[in-house]
């Protein structure tokens, strides 16, 4: 079976990350928070990156953008953006890509807009830096046009307002407008873009995302802890656990048949039938992501895994490619897949 996800993949992906390892400098030595991650995002593709907080997914995004915090550094790997390895490009050139050809929609609209600057200023300064040829009147016009595009009412008046005068949903729309204002975005990285919003606004923003992605023909890396968000938007999903990818699959395949026990756990904790109010009563996976500083032997998920066997604690599983074009990191995936396929057939 050929998945519809693979149909949109073209020969050269917009983003192609290979074997990326990121560590935090620590007195006791480097602590790896992202370990050998391979991930690509094709043209016009929305790829979801899922994981709990602490899984390393936000640091992964910052590494792509080249805005890692001081304490963190890329130890190994390649980050190819439109064919060029960003680790070999001087930082000043990576800066020029940011906000222009690759952009970020941040997690917290409440805190990621500058409280001391007017909305208009925060929008037009992006053009000032990346499109200096555009005059000041045209910049303002463009800002209004973008606010209108992302569904901000009274866009002209918003320019003179400050972030604290806007609701959370409006702020997130402003942040999206800010990310797209240059009009040349090839890769949009959205880091938990709806987490801070309430449910109805969440749905609106996700709709906006999908609409804009189609309109602007851009690729999106959507980072979230919420598989529900992925189901509504992404074509392919990568599941991250403790700094490693544990499963990569097309969104339909993954939801139909999760291979990794962790993915299964995430899916089981999703509300069915779209009743978000029940969310808090759902079983979630017990335990927490192991500390990246803890010594690791065997499978990182072993402590929380219901299917754990002897070998899991002794030998770390590798990310294996399956015959259906998916990858999974579990010693028992094949066996479990068969077992669950049988059970599903019976029920």
């Amino acid at each position: 079976m050929i998945s519809d996800a693979s149909a949109v993949l073209t020969a050269s992906p917009v983003l192609d990350v290979r074997d990326l390892t990121i560590a935090f400098r620590h007195r006791a030595g480097p602590v790896q928070v992202v370990r050998g991650v391979d991930l690509s995002v094709g043209h016009g593709e929305i790829v979801g990156l899922v994981g709990e907080s602490g899984s390393g997914k936000s640091i992964f995004a910052r590494a792509i953008l080249g805005t890692l915090p001081r304490q963190a550094e890329v130890l190994e790997g390649k980050i190819a953006f439109s064919g060029s390895d960003l680790r070999r490009v001087p930082p000043s050139e990576v800066r020029q890509l940011r906000g222009d050809r690759m952009a970020l929609v941040p997690q917290e609209p409440m805190t990621s807009l500058n409280p001391a600057l007017r909305i208009g200023r925060q929008l037009t300064e992006v053009l000032e830096v990346h499109r200096p040829e555009i005059g000041s009147a045209a910049r303002t016009a463009r800002a209004i046009e973008m606010l209108d595009l992302v569904g901000v009412n009274l866009p002209g008046e918003r320019l003179a307002q400050y972030p604290h005068q806007l609701s959370g949903g409006l702020r997130q729309r402003v942040a999206i407008a800010m990310a797209l204002i240059c009009g040349r975005v090839e890769l949009l990285i959205a880091d938990e873009p709806t987490t801070a919003l309430d449910v109805t606004i969440q749905a609106q923003i996700l709709d906006l995302f999908v609409r804009l992605q189609e309109q602007q023909r851009m690729s999106v890396l959507l980072i979230t802890h919420d598989l529900g968000v992925i189901a509504q938007t992404a074509q392919r999903v990568a599941v991250m656990y403790a700094g490693e990818l544990v499963e990569v699959a097309g969104v339909n395949e993954l939801f139909a048949m999760p291979h990794h026990p962790y993915t299964r756990g995430l899916l089981d904790s999703l509300p069915r039938g779209g009743n978000a109010a029940r969310k808090s009563h759902l079983p979630s996976i017990e335990g927490t992501v192991p500390s990246p500083a803890a010594p690791r032997q065997g499978c990182a998920f072993a402590d929380r895994c219901a299917f754990r066997v002897d070998i899991c604690g002794r030998r770390a599983p590798m990310l294996e490619a399956t015959t259906s074009g998916r990858s999974v990191r579990c010693h028992r995936w094949q066996e479990l897949a068969d077992r669950f396929a049988c059970r599903d057939a019976v029920t």
């Binding site: 890509l97 805190t111 600057l117 300064e125 800010m178």
Partner: peptide
């Protein structure tokens, strides 16, 4: 360390603008 300064960097603002304006 704030997120809006991180955001200014993510927008590709030159460091001088990040420090003074933001």
């Amino acid at each position: 360390e704030t997120e809006y300064v991180g955001m200014a960097r993510a927008k590709g603002m030159p460091e001088r603008i990040v420090i003074i304006r933001h």
